[in-house]
Amino acid sequence: MIRKTLLCIFISLLSFAAIAQNKIYQIYTSDGEIVDESKMHESINQAEVTFFGELHNNSVAHWLQLQILKNLKENQKDIVLGGEFFERDDQLNIDEWLEGKITDKNFEAEAKLWNNYIPDYKPLMLFAKQNQIPFVATNIPRKYASVVSREGLERLESFSKEAKKSIAPLPIEVDMTLPGYEGMKGMMHGSGMNADFMVEAQAIKDATMAYSLFEFINKKKSIFHVNGSYHSNNYEGIVWYLRKEYPKIKILTIATVEQDDTTSLLDASKGIADFIIVLPTDSPKSY
């Protein structure tokens, strides 16, 4: 009996080792310490707003988002899902679909869907629908961001009150000295485009995504927001605008990066978020 028990334990340990070795991703703290999902989930459940900075085409990152949303549902009463992947003027379509008033077919025909919506974002939306989790579309309509990239922020002042409902209240402050914005300007050197306008276009996206969450922060909701990593890395972007309005709010950030070797975090990625998920460079992609 003892031999049989020891054999079962040995087999279990081998199985655990195999799973650990085959794990496709690794989670690190800001300073590069390896942690497991339970530590990250515990921290998320203590935050008021969590930003998941994704690599848009990484399928593993999207699966992890769904696991976080499921964990939040189990542990929080009032949660809200938000996302960059829908623009604010699609909110009515989203609400009608979540309430079962329109079909998937009608919704997906009328909403401005990203190319990878079906494989990467629809699972999140379906879980939200099945569990009565509100969803807030946070992104500025791309047509307005495009105007800013060509003509600057001031051009938005000429748009109608109806148009401005989909934009953060104007004027917005743009701190061109933020490292992320400075880096963006540097990358555009010699491109022939107006670098300041491009930064302003990025800033109006960040400001609008932050503004879209104010209502739910005031309602004391626990918010899980999905966005590109560059919108929340280094606590800039959306986080900067949110903290301007709510300086004491408990924010947690997650960043995703790809590395050939996931067994340690590269120095360049340390400090960019509270948790950094390292994915292998050759992990599955949706496009």
Rank of each mutant, 00 (worst) to 15 (best):
I277T: 01
N234D: 15
C8F: 14
K244V: 04
T263N: 13
L213V: 09
E110Y: 09
W63S: 14
K129W: 00
V199C: 11
F10C: 15
A207W: 05
E84M: 08
L66N: 10
N115W: 06
Q130F: 03
D196R: 11
K112V: 11
A268E: 15
P280V: 00
Q21H: 11
D206Q: 05
I238L: 00
E258R: 08
V49S: 03
S160C: 08
G152M: 08
G53Y: 01
I204D: 02
L153W: 03
Y287A: 08
K73Q: 13
K73L: 12
Q46E: 15
K70N: 10
G186R: 10
N227Y: 00
K77D: 15
Y181W: 14
N194A: 05
E54S: 00
K164Q: 14
F159S: 03
Y287Q: 13
N227D: 05
K105T: 12
D120R: 01
E173P: 00
S149W: 06
E245C: 02
I272R: 11
T253C: 09
A201N: 10
P123E: 10
G82K: 01
I251M: 08
L6M: 13
L81C: 08
A163G: 07
F197V: 04
A201G: 13
P284H: 11
R88M: 10
P123Y: 10
I19C: 11
P179F: 07
K4P: 00
T138A: 15
Y181T: 06
F216S: 12
L178F: 06
N194T: 06
V80A: 02
Y181I: 05
G237F: 02
E154F: 07
E162V: 13
K122W: 07
L156Q: 06
L170Q: 02
K285E: 13
K244T: 02
L265E: 07
V35E: 11
D206T: 05
A137V: 02
I11K: 02
G186K: 14
E96D: 09
I68A: 14
P134W: 08
E215W: 03
F85T: 04
I172V: 07
F135H: 10
G271N: 12
K101G: 01
F10Y: 12
S59I: 06
D31F: 10
K143M: 11
A203W: 03
A109G: 02
Y117K: 02
I277R: 01
T103I: 06
M209L: 09
L72H: 01
K248E: 15
Q91K: 02
I238Q: 00
Q21T: 06
D261R: 07
K161W: 05
M209V: 07
R142H: 07
M184C: 04
A273D: 00
I133T: 08
Y181R: 11
I102P: 00
G83H: 03
V147T: 14
T50C: 12
I79F: 04
V174G: 08
F275I: 11
M209N: 05
V148T: 05
L98A: 06
E162T: 13
K70L: 08
T29R: 10
L213M: 14
E154G: 13
S43T: 13
A268R: 14
Y25K: 04
N234Y: 14
N57G: 06
P134M: 05
I34E: 12
